[in-house]
């Protein structure tokens, strides 16, 4: 069997994902907060409050705790001389091979949260597909971009 990719996302990436999960859970927070407020104001039945609280806590727990952990636990990548291999997925595990000679360009991207933690997203584009390593140390991402673009020199055949 093929050797599995074994490089992991840095632990700071998990932290960054938890933060963006927290931001994501603002919308259901407002929603359930509104429902609870309405329940007090208009004398709605008591179970509305319970249901809203349950909904919000379940959502928040999944988005802040479970999903980022699972995602982080599963993410593996490896950049070899001839190809890039990615392995990820929370419930359905995907393994992808991208040959170096098919790579057209590599980008790094940084949102405010990733920047705070010194992380960056690396995007690898072929002629037909785009692949992403969601959080890497900035230095490593730069290095990787340089490494890949050095290896992925223009292929001799078309596209």
């Amino acid at each position: 069997m093929i050797t599995e990719p074994h490089k992991r996302i840095p632990a700071r990436g998990l932290l960054a994902w938890r933060i963006s999960g927290t931001i994501h859970s603002v919308f259901p927070f407002v929603l359930s907060g509104g429902a609870i407020a309405a329940a007090f104001l208009f004398n709605w039945p008591i179970w509305v409050i319970g249901a809203s609280l349950m909904f919000y806590s379940a959502y928040a727990y999944l988005v802040i705790m479970t999903f980022p952990s699972l995602r982080w636990k599963r993410w593996r990548y490896e950049v070899r001389e001839n190809e890039i291999e990615l392995k990820h997925g929370m419930f359905i595990i995907k393994r992808t091979l991208v040959p170096m000679i098919r790579v057209q360009h590599v980008d790094t991207r940084q949102g405010p949260i990733l920047r705070k933690y010194g992380l960056a997203t690396v995007t690898i584009s072929t002629a037909a597909t785009v692949h992403e390593i969601p959080a890497l140390d900035v230095g490593e991402a730069e290095e990787l971009r340089f490494f890949i673009s050095k290896l992925a020199r223009a292929a001799d055949d078309d596209v």
Binding site: G89, F91, I92, I93, K94, R95, T96, L97, V98, P99, I101, R102, T126, A127, A128, T129, H131, D157
Partner: peptide, 13 residues
């Protein structure tokens, strides 16, 4: 083989 841009396997539980 040299025209395939990427290949992906996926496995669910």
């Amino acid at each position: 083989r040299n025209r395939i841009q990427s290949l992906t396997i996926s496995e669910g539980y």
